[in-house]
């Protein structure tokens, strides 16, 4: 298996084999962070720009650390310190950066599809660090890596995602990745938080969290955003917590080896009870550790693909085009 892509835009377009290959590669990178000198020269000579148009602490730090441990040159760019506020277009912003020869762009953006837009127009590799309500592929990968550590092969395993699925890029990346690995994915949350036609995503829905969690191997709890409540989708945070907070009583419903996950940052006492977040089933901090390994793996694989492209060993494939009327 080789990974010949120039970009990581989403998990939906990856094959099962490609996902497994990234996860396997991440396993070997986990060890680097355990060393006394936590650094390898893999990305020496590569310049990576972290382009964050939305606030992010953990994802940006995780990427930055991954880049530095791979010895890349790193540039950080965030909306508050840029000319974006003056109305410069995304393409102009990026072309200015590329004039200084950047190889890889790690981008977080509030508009779904923004990384796809960019990938079609610039020669650099684009890594999606979360786009709008679409996908957050490295989060999906680190979630799967964490699940694999605790459960082994994920096929046939039941994963329940609880919360605001409609607006969650984490949920979409989990759904695409997990269904490709053969897991059974169940969504739970208030009906106003469930996207239309969920069956088209290959998942089932159970509004009753207790029923949904029965025998689950994983419960992945999503952050509930206050502004969504005010948008009229739920009466209040309290109303959400009453029926969909994952509490102690839910843990006994899980499979004996069942784990609790959360992509962070947590609203303790809203979507997840304090005792659960800090309890023995929680693997939330492991997720953070694995995030670093996954991001190192992704950057490494993209850099290798770029080298192969330069050597003419592979050709750049056009991005998938929508089917056009024959």
């Amino acid at each position: 298996m080789s990974f010949d892509r120039m970009h990581l835009l989403d998990l939906e377009s990856l094959s099962r084999e490609e996902i497994i290959h990234i996860l396997d590669t991440a396993e070997s990178f986990r060890e680097i962070s355990e060393r006394e000198i936590k650094k390898v020269p893999t990305l020496r000579g590569f310049t990576v720009v972290n382009l964050f148009f939305e606030d992010s602490t953990r994802t940006r730090i995780s990427f930055e650390l991954a880049e530095k441990r791979l010895s890349a040159d790193v540039v950080n760019f965030s909306k508050s310190t840029s000319s974006v506020q003056k109305g410069e277009s995304l393409l102009d912003t990026v072309e200015n950066l590329l004039a200084m020869k950047m190889d890889i762009i790690v981008m977080r953006h509030g508009a779904s599809g923004a990384p796809h837009y960019l990938a079609e127009r610039v020669p650099a590799s684009v890594v999606n660090a979360g786009d709008g309500k679409h996908e957050h592929p490295t989060q999906g990968l680190l979630d799967m890596l964490t699940m694999r550590h605790h459960l082994g092969d994920l096929s046939g395993r039941k994963v329940v995602i609880v919360g605001d699925i409609l607006h969650s890029r984490v949920a979409r990346s989990n759904i695409h990745g997990l269904t490709k690995l053969g897991a059974e994915v169940v969504l739970s949350g208030p009906p106003t938080f469930i996207p239309p036609k969920p069956e088209s995503l290959g998942v089932s829905v159970d509004y009753d969290i207790g029923r949904a969690l029965k025998g689950a191997h994983v419960v992945n709890v999503l952050r509930v955003q206050k502004e969504r409540q005010e948008g009229g989708l739920m009466p209040s945070m309290r109303a959400y917590a009453r029926d969909w907070q994952v509490g102690l009583k839910h843990l006994e419903l899980l499979a004996p080896d069942g784990i609790v996950m959360h992509p962070g940052p947590m609203n303790r006492g809203v979507e997840i009870a304090q005792e659960v977040a800090d309890g023995p089933r929680s693997v939330i901090l492991e997720q953070v550790t694995n995030g670093l390994a996954v991001r190192m793996a992704v950057l490494y694989l993209l850099s290798e693909a770029r080298k192969k492209l330069e050597r003419g060993e592979i050709e750049e494939k056009p991005l998938e085009k929508s089917e056009v009327l024959a």
Binding site: S112, D131, K133, R172, P195, P196, K197, P198, S200, L201
Partner: peptide, 15 residues
């Protein structure tokens, strides 16, 4: 359009 494609793309739907 609000439907399976808007669900996948993470775009707000118009029913």
């Amino acid at each position: 359009h609000e439907g399976s494609v808007s669900s996948r793309l993470g775009l707000e739907g118009i029913p």
